[in-house]
């Protein structure tokens, strides 16, 4: 089996494994990881396409895979921030609010950091679009 097929098929397998795990709905964190496995599969498939260029590797799939990594990173960061916010609210009991990094009546300080992170991820993505 040649290199292209190995990588491409691995990509397909990773994508399907991730998808299967997401559809089983095992909980937020596992779903986020599963989505990342899916993403790795997709991007691996992309990178494997570079091989089929006549003179040297085709740079386009690499550029696209890089952009895809940035997008997935931003989305994962946003997902983790949301998951943490949800976890904290559940821990606090009921119906509280996360405002600017503080849980009302709570002691935690971390959410502002997370929120900042997820937004800078979005900016990065905007840059990638230009």
């Amino acid at each position: 089996m040649d290199t292209f097929l190995t990588f491409a098929l691995t990509g397909v397998v990773l994508f399907s494994l991730g998808l299967q795990e997401v559809l089983a709905r095992p909980g937020v964190l596992r779903m986020l990881i599963a989505v990342n496995v899916m993403g790795s599969g997709t991007l691996l498939f992309f990178v494997s396409l570079a091989h089929r260029h006549a003179d040297g590797p085709d740079p386009v799939p690499h550029a696209l895979a890089l952009t895809g990594i940035v997008v997935t990173l931003a989305a994962t960061a946003a997902g983790l921030a949301l998951a943490r916010g949800l976890h904290r609210l559940r821990a606090e009991g009921s119906g509280g609010r996360v405002e600017g990094g503080r849980v009302e009546g709570g002691r935690s300080q971390g959410a502002g950091y997370e929120r900042g992170r997820s937004e800078s991820g979005r900016d990065e993505q905007g840059r990638a679009d230009r």
Partner: peptide
């Protein structure tokens, strides 16, 4: 930042990522 909105945003995010 309420439970309902963060939960809804998370479901939205996971669905849309897939």
């Amino acid at each position: 930042g309420t439970r309902a909105t963060i939960g809804a945003a998370l479901v939205y995010l996971l669905a849309t990522l897939v």
